[in-house]
Design a protein around this nucleic acid. Sequence first.
DNA 1: TGTACATCAGTGAACGCGCGTTCACTGATGTAC
DNA 2: TGTACATCAGTGAACGCGCGTTCACTGATGTAC
Lengths: 212, 212
Amino acid sequence: MSDETSSQAAPSVTPKASYHHGDLRAQLIAAVRELVETHGPDGFSVAEAARRAGVSSAAPYKHFKDRHEILRGVVSEAMDRLRAEMEIGAAAHAPGSLEAVAAVGQAYVDFARAEPGVFRLVFGLTEGHENAPDLLAKGEGCFGVVVQAVAACLSLTPADPDVQRRAYLLWSFVHGHSFLTIDMKHKVAAAEINDWDYLMEISRAILAPSVS
Amino acid sequence: MSDETSSQAAPSVTPKASYHHGDLRAQLIAAVRELVETHGPDGFSVAEAARRAGVSSAAPYKHFKDRHEILRGVVSEAMDRLRAEMEIGAAAHAPGSLEAVAAVGQAYVDFARAEPGVFRLVFGLTEGHENAPDLLAKGEGCFGVVVQAVAACLSLTPADPDVQRRAYLLWSFVHGHSFLTIDMKHKVAAAEINDWDYLMEISRAILAPSVS
DNA sequence: TGTACATCAGTGAACGCGCGTTCACTGATGTAC
DNA sequence: TGTACATCAGTGAACGCGCGTTCACTGATGTAC
């Protein structure tokens, strides 16, 4: 009846809307996201997430096999958002422009800055998650956004090895900058907000040899 | 008497050699390093480390205030090694050469590949370690190696803002590449071992505009 | 439309576990005389 | 050189804690007739 809180972007779960609780699955994921953000990866517990969602500590097990599956859910959802924001960034500029490439990177950095805990979690999942094909696929998807922007910029096909290589070089830089930024949030604060200049410079440096 | 196991590289601890145990402090750090490597950051416990060192679970508290301090010890030691290897890398090539710059990056990547767990720990310490001045200083020290190589390459002083900026751009790339490499160790394996080409290409791209 | 039944989301109590840390202690080592 | 004492690294038992997970259950919702 009341689907005021139903997020139709939620993937891989039948949207059966309000049953008993409403949508406990989504609320648990949101709770874990907050916990990870506040206490870092591994700083969450099923019990605490259940508490925050207002259910008993056994309830989560109706939606997730174990604690690892909840974490995977958080990561999956985060990757969806990351990709969406990268695409929005690219779309905000002329297709094929250097700015479009830089904007993809900017979206990436912004995401890391906005949710450093989740960002770390996404790229730090190493315990019981070695083989999660859906997550790997979503990672590929994110990289695909970079590849597409680079391909458009170089007027080449995304499958071109040169595009792949340059896209990877760019992604490495953006990834590293994102991590360094959230690691040193105290120190560099003021002098470091010129992401955009850096992103444009590095994009030009990496793409130029074939563009100019 | 028997200082067969005394490592004179151990910092910040008076090397009083074999007391009861030998050098429990160092052995605990080694045990935790292994645990972190095997089970990931947060995958260690004081109890398990003590067990591996062959002492009771209370013994570690004679050397460390709490579990956080042990972790900080591991990170501190790892950063010493990382810096040493970066310096060795730089020293293996002509001072001021592009190769020297790339070699610093190569040492960094090699370290990440050799000890991915510890590498993650070094850059993921976010719980009770916000203000650990010695660790921040060691991070600065590592960055300083990059800065020095870049400065030599550009024939500028390390304090030059342009040197700082280019060094940071380079470090971001190397850092990102290191993380991506250890995250995707399964996938890219074969096609990705050409670190050196990447490092030379990116070093040239970032340093060239002022070199050529 | 009404009733009987199957489904299944959430309960709450309980379990065993390993952990971090403290505590009074022991006994080997180093030091002063 | 020998003895008395202070130091302090390591012991082992104990504590309270929160966690992950299971289990039999309850009661609301959806469905078949």
